[in-house]
Design a protein around this nucleic acid. Structure first.
Lengths: 341, 341
DNA sequence: CTGAAAGCGCTTACAG
DNA sequence: CTGAAAGCGCTTACAG
């Protein structure tokens, strides 16, 4: 199976006529090596096509140079953005990224530390809802396992985190709908185990309160952040005779589902009903009409969280809390409320 | 930072009153250990919460228990399915998955081996177009680096692979359109560096030939497998006065883009034009109308390819070639050709 | 059935 | 400025 086997530091040392320690020094850019020897080592490295064995480096350094990314998310677009943010930060570093999707964060909460240790990870980036899970946070903190958090909404003191302001974002979106003349606004909530659902509900309520619009609790439906749950919740909301003139879905997948429900019921979007989302994920650009939404800086948050984790492991300074701005993206799925019939 | 440090095999051995070799034997289920000692070791393992250090195991075994997944794909849905297929196979194994997205396979072709080695991977699952790239295949084969291939269309003898029949699948889809009465069928090709594009073109031509329909080369447009390229190609195809009555896009993202182009031009789908895709990715279920497409067994192929790779590394037998069936999924984006106006 | 020794490929501390 | 020694935490031979 294997061809010529890989050169080791011993091979390089003997080819260069120096000790392995000198080779090590040159490779790690340590000072105090004569230029002449440096050159010899570099030449030997090149001609032998030598690459240090990360596993051996890891053993002596008691580290694996492996970082984990934990997520439980039904949206491929979200997941891929998360991964790219992390990966882009790791480009050129010795660290590699191991992906750890979990079916249900609640189910693995008790074994998180064991899981991370058995995979020999040096640290982990936690994303919602793991980044908000008290048991996981407690276990990791207590054991001293390095971690950073993406988009938490609770326990701001436990570990470094990157955030965006979910409350203000939901508030901004709701204000936009109110400005368009809507007063009967439906809400499709996300998975209740994700605390962002609460934060966005809070922002929604806040904007309503500011405008003096009485809350319509009967227009709040439970979804799960999935497309299908959006279809169902949308149908429930649109099938009633006192249906809302606008619907705010707490993510784009559900907004897309609600739009599909409207299509299926023969209700025009945004003519008869405005439907908006949250995330600015790919689906928002491919539905008809395209979805007015909040751009959530998923890529940026993942990248920053990874950056913090690397800094932590490399014992370099870093800001323990970074907030990335959101942005209201106006597309075609929301319009002014129709004049009363 | 770190709390109590992890127990090592030495700790377990002294707690159990045996040698580290005996601990090693018990952990690896080697025979010839007295029941009594086995129990002692297990108890010590449990009470110390011992987990073997994979890095140390890797160093002596000259392996890292790290597998790579290489892809260059613009579609998040495709990528996530690929990852889940691989990950699900690895569940419960010691192997972990490192994701290796590349901007352009062609760009990294010369450094693939170096990349894999520097990441200390034991093996890699190659996906299109890397799984078809002669330089990469040659380099890996020559060096003896373990790899398996997902959905290659060329060089069937180089390494184990999992496939689906792209030619027959494209043929089946084209036949379906022909049965609906279409004769002027447009084609949006995918990224030319992916050989699946050629295979699907071939299947398309074959079905046309069988039905005795003369080819309309002017109705073939180049896309890149991205949504935006589908919008553009769709617009070019639909903006002409002798526009086709049906369009076959070589993947769902482009089909979705073409549908959007139709919407923007005020052309009804499928009333005025039928538009079909390929892949059965998430986008096919969320556009309006939902897309008639070919279900490509991406998950299954990734899973099988990972299975083969693990078998190869563990020196167990495996089938070097597995074909997974495709399936025609009829939704609402294609219908009968309109009677001539 | 059990264990002492050697070694995987590096880096950390220590001498000179 | 350079190197010999020790050791990271395991497994692979090899003895008994």
């Amino acid at each position: 199976m294997s061809g010529k086997k890989r050169a080791t530091i011993v091979d390089v040392a003997s080819a260069a006529g120096v000790s392995i320690k000198t080779v090590s020094r040159v490779l790690n850019n340590e000072p105090h090596v004569r230029k002449e020897l440096q050159d010899k080592v570099r030449r030997a490295t090149k001609s032998l096509n030598y690459q240090p064995n990360v596993v051996a480096q890891g053993l002596v350094g008691r580290r694996s140079y492996l970082l984990g990314l934990v997520y439980e998310n039904p949206s491929p677009n979200y997941v891929v953005e998360l991964q790219h943010g992390a990966l882009d930060r790791l480009h050129g570093e010795r660290y590699r990224l191991v992906v750890l999707p979990v079916e249900s964060v609640a189910d693995v909460a008790g074994n998180m530390l064991a899981l991370l240790r058995s995979a020999a990870l040096d640290g982990v980036v936690l994303t919602p809802p793991a980044s908000d899970h008290p048991k996981i946070l407690e276990e990791l903190r207590e054991s001293g396992f390095p971690f950073t958090r993406v988009a938490p909404t609770r326990f701001p003191d436990i570990g470094p985190s990157t955030t965006t302001d979910d409350v203000e974002a939901a508030c901004a979106m709701t204000r936009y709908l109110i400005e368009l003349g809507h007063r009967d606004i439906g809400l499709i909530k996300g998975d209740p185990t994700h605390s962002a659902s609460e934060a966005r509900l809070f922002g929604f309520s806040k904007a309503l309160g500011e405008a003096g619009i009485p809350p319509r609790l009967d227009l709040i439906e439970q979804g799960m952040f999935t497309y299908d749950s959006g279809v169902e919740a949308g149908r429930r909301l649109l099938d009633r005779k006192d249906r809302p003139t606008a619907i705010f879905a707490q993510n784009d997948d559900m907004a897309g589902g609600a739009i599909m429900a409207a299509h299926d019921l023969g209700i025009d979007v945004p003519g008869d009903v405005s439907i908006v989302g949250f995330d600015d994920s790919q689906i928002a650009k491919v539905t008809w009409p395209r979805i007015t939404t909040i751009h959530q800086p998923v890529y940026d948050m993942a990248r920053s969280a990874t950056d913090m984790l690397v800094a932590m492991l490399d014992k370099k300074p870093y800001l323990p809390m970074v907030e990335h701005p959101f942005e209201l993206i106006v597309r075609q799925s929301a319009g002014p409320r129709r004049a009363e019939p």
